[in-house]
């Protein structure tokens, strides 16, 4: 359905925006390394079915490979700044102070409590869904702490938020047309979209109404 396709495209766009801007400006100002590392972990734990015989479609396969490869590539790209631009890298590390072990532990507990089957793959899948729902927090924390939003991070988070938002409509669509619902994905998806809702309001004020303001 259209919601899902545009959701996926918006997710692709967010990664494209991030990669393009980092590569072309050679700047990592305002980007949270922790959030990017968490996303790499999210895809590594979710797409393990690539190595099983679970085949969905060519589209699904190619997207999984792309998300997996691009998330790892972003982490590597950011790590290169450690030697390429130590000052910028150090500044990022100093601002990137969110305690992610709470997110990891919370997602692990949620994965152990809520899963479809008690198998390693299913628990890791569930862990990845819960982790994705909170993985943006270090980035949002960094934005609110620095009080200024780089256009890169603003557009990046907007595209990511749009992807989650469209997925909610995708689930409503699937519930109506296919009578299919994945409770774990839906609950975690709503949590994730709620995380972005405050950001959406800021984006609306800043970008759409053109107020060059600061983040509260």
């Amino acid at each position: 359905n259209l919601f899902r396709i545009f959701g996926d495209l918006s997710h692709l766009a967010s990664i494209g925006i991030l990669l393009h801007t980092v590569r072309s400006t050679q700047s990592i100002d305002g980007i949270s390394f922790k959030t990017q590392a968490l996303y790499a972990l999210v895809f590594m734990t979710r797409y393990l079915d690539l190595f099983t015989w679970h085949w969905v479609s060519l589209y699904n396969f190619l997207m999984k490979v792309f998300f997996l490869a691009s998330s790892v590539y972003i982490v590597v790209l950011l790590q290169q700044f450690r030697t390429k631009n130590p000052i910028a890298y150090k500044e990022m590390v100093l601002q990137d102070t969110f305690k992610i072990h709470f997110l990891l532990l919370g997602s692990l507990v949620a994965g152990l409590c809520f899963h479809h089957r008690f198998t390693l793959l299913e628990i890791l899948w569930s862990f990845s869904v819960w982790l994705e729902s909170v993985a943006i927090l270090p980035q949002l924390f960094m934005l609110s702490k620095s009080g200024r939003a780089q256009s890169l991070t603003v557009h990046y988070i907007f595209a990511l938020g749009l992807y989650r938002f469209l997925y909610i409509f995708n689930w409503i669509w699937r519930y109506v047309s296919e009578a299919r619902v994945d409770k774990i994905a839906v609950v975690a998806g709503i949590v994730q979209t709620a995380m972005y809702s405050d950001f959406f309001y800021i984006y609306y004020k800043k970008v759409i109404r053109g107020n060059a303001g600061n983040l509260p």
Partner: peptide, 10 residues
């Protein structure tokens, strides 16, 4: 009504 892992989404 189908509930459970299809895992056909990204």
């Amino acid at each position: 009504f189908v509930y459970g892992p299809g895992h056909d989404e990204l």
